[in-house]
Amino acid sequence: MNIFRLAGDMTHLASVLVLLLKIHTIKSCAGVSLRTQELYAIVFATRYLDIFTSFVSVYNTFMKLVFLGSSFSIVWYMRYHKAVHRTYDREQDTFRHWFLVLPCLVLALLIHEKFTFLEVLWTFSLYLEAVAILPQLVLLQRTRNIDNLTGQYIFLLGGYRGLYILNWIYRYFTEPHFVHWITWIAGLVQTLLYADFFYYYFLRFIGGRGVE
């Protein structure tokens, strides 16, 4: 565990907690894409299946449970909590998530390190995480309305991705056999999506229109 990895995990954790806080206390999920949240729930559910088969550390198991619990809670709130559900931008959040899930599944079946059930699903979760933010970005561009908490959520997620890349660079130079092409490329694609968003975000910000 290096400082970049820990900072990345904490940033990731903070992003999820910011979102839960917004939904739980303000009872609003305006501007939040249910599609993206459902994709993250699928990502965690397929990646952490090894929670039953391999133990790394108490920290790892604890964090996995937190990410599973929080992502499914957010989906539950948005789907089934009446007050929260009423604030959901259903008409705008129309990105077809199957267009992301199916290609990722096919890609995981074709490109993986080992052809086992757990390994293919784990690889699938990497590919899916890379693109899971897309419905959220589309929703953001459509509604052109980004409140502080939604903005912070996306900033924290982007920060988490950036820190993970620093973590991989650090591990590559300090751990003799640390080479994981699939993880790196998927992670890089994901980070580039965030970079694109930040670029757009700053252009608007500098353009004087600010953030509503």
Binding site: R5, D9, H12, D50, S54, V56, S57, N60, M63, K64, F67, E113, W122, Y164, N167, E175, H177, F178, H180, T183
Partner: peptide
């Protein structure tokens, strides 16, 4: 061993 390395991240 490499397995454990890749799976120790979240």
């Amino acid at each position: 061993e490499q397995d454990l390395e890749s799976k120790d991240e979240l």
